[in-house]
């Protein structure tokens, strides 16, 4: 059970609840959508790997907000942040409704929430994404390549990675979402598909293993995706003695630590475990902190 002070990271203090309007909705890939929301304050403060909660401004079904990671910051002609874009797979009641949102629809949004990925300080940053788990990595990669900075004051990097890779695995080519955005000079983009419709046929973990086999010195791994994949990535990194961070997606009701829904098993100093809230102590954890 946590020290009380540690349950409220500094990031939370700039969180706010906003009434906001939808700017645009677009199809990103098969069953996959992206929504842009006008929320200048959120856009100015959120950092890669952090999330926010969103729901319709009115009504009670669906009821609770849903958590989404930042995909992209929307900027005006002068480069000022005006909103956030996030991606999602249409799977249930809320995501079906969200895919039908249109410009001008009113929503309630609160954030930024949680602890994102640390500022990348390593020789080679490898991001490993499964399915819709790629969304937080656009910001991570842009920051690592020095193309964009996030937060107020802007986060700075002392040791910028010399190499940045994204290993991105999906079921089939149709599910690749945001490939245009991820086509960035300086990014080593590696794709795996289960059916071999594009890229490497097989698991994305094989791509990671290949990279680590070439040179694992000074590598840091950031991972987001389905739990079995993250577990495999954590094991590969442990075997290679490479530091690994995982971003968890656990069901949550509030996103700010009030409901105690989103717990995951976190290792205690004495080797036992305790349920900790993913929303305020994560969603990004060091892999060795977790009982997967």
């Amino acid at each position: 059970m946590s020290e009380y002070s540690s349950t409220l990271p500094g990031m939370m203090l700039c969180a706010k609840q906003h009434q906001a309007k939808i700017v645009a909705v677009r199809a990103m890939a098969q069953d996959t959508w992206a929504v842009k929301v006008h929320a200048p304050e959120l856009a100015a403060t959120i950092t890669p790997g952090q999330f926010f909660m969103i729901r319709p401004a009115t009504g009670s079904d669906p009821l609770l907000g849903r958590p989404f990671a930042l995909f992209d910051i929307v900027r005006d002609a002068a480069g000022q942040p005006t909103g956030v874009e996030f991606g999602f797979v249409k799977v249930g009641k809320m995501t079906t409704l969200m895919s039908q949102w249109s410009k001008g629809d009113e929503v309630s949004v609160w954030g930024p929430l949680g602890n994102g990925f640390p500022v990348p300080e390593c020789r080679h940053l490898i991001c490993v994404a499964g399915g819709i788990g790629q969304t937080p990595f656009l910001g991570v990669i842009r920051e690592a390549l020095g193309l964009e900075s996030y937060g107020i004051p802007p986060r700075s990097i002392t040791t910028r990675p010399q190499q940045v890779s994204l290993c991105y695995g999906v079921r089939s080519a149709g599910y690749l979402a945001g490939i245009e955005e991820f086509t960035i000079p300086g990014l080593d983009l590696q794709i795996a598909t289960d059916d071999g419709s594009t890229g490497h046929q097989g698991y994305v973990t094989q791509l990671l293993q290949n990279k680590l086999a070439q040179n694992s010195d000074g590598v840091h791994v950031y991972c987001c995706g389905p739990e079995p994949m993250m577990k495999a990535v954590a094991e590969i990194c442990k075997a290679a003695a490479v530091p690994c961070w995982l971003s968890l997606e656990t069901p949550m009701a509030c996103g700010f630590g009030a409901c105690f829904s989103c717990v995951t098993k976190v290792v205690e100093p004495d080797g036992s475990w305790d349920y900790r809230r993913t929303c305020v102590e994560g969603p990004v954890f060091r892999a060795e902190q977790l009982v997967l």
């Binding site: 009821l63 609770l64 069901p251 009701a253 105690f260 829904s261 989103c262 717990v263 995951t264 349920y275």
Partner: peptide, 20 residues
Amino acid sequence: RPGNPPPRTVETASGMLNSI
């Protein structure tokens, strides 16, 4: 008390179930 194993909440029609 460590609390109950997750999932601890699920949304239902205009409501939610919790078992924290």
